[in-house]
């Protein structure tokens, strides 16, 4: 158990987080951006669970990660609905087409 240690998990979490951010910043497909969000949230979640095992956070960490999963699902639902709405209005999901509002 202790052979892996906390740091390993934290590194994986950080990598997930950064991958998510990059994904959000580069994907032109709206759905792809939302996938990036999921990655970011998972990075944080992994942190929570790892801390729950290894620090004084204890069970709180696991519970927090549960709530995050549920909230992320809710957010994903709304984001998808909005994305579909965007699609209906613009007939594309390319976010670079969202350029009417600027300045």
């Amino acid at each position: 158990m202790e052979s892996v240690g906390l740091s390993g998990y934290l590194i994986v979490g950080a990598v997930l987080f950064v991958c998510g951010v990059i994904c959000m910043a580069t994907k032109r497909n709206g759905i792809g951006i939302l996938m990036g969000v999921e990655l970011v949230l998972n990075g944080a979640n992994l942190n929570f669970v790892a801390f729950s095992q290894h620090t004084h956070l204890g069970l709180d960490g696991q519970i927090a990660s549960l709530f995050v999963i549920v909230l992320a699902a809710a957010e994903a639902a709304v984001a998808l609905a909005i994305a579909l709405n965007f699609y209906n209005n613009h007939l594309t999901i390319d976010v670079d087409r969202a350029a009417d509002l600027k300045g």
Binding site: G30, I31, L34, M35, E38, A72, A73, A76, A77, L80, A83, L84, Y87, I93
Partner: peptide, 13 residues
């Protein structure tokens, strides 16, 4: 759940 939702989104768009 979530990923299926996303895939729905992919298909619809």
């Amino acid at each position: 759940g979530t990923v299926v939702l996303l895939i729905f989104g992919v298909m619809l768009t």
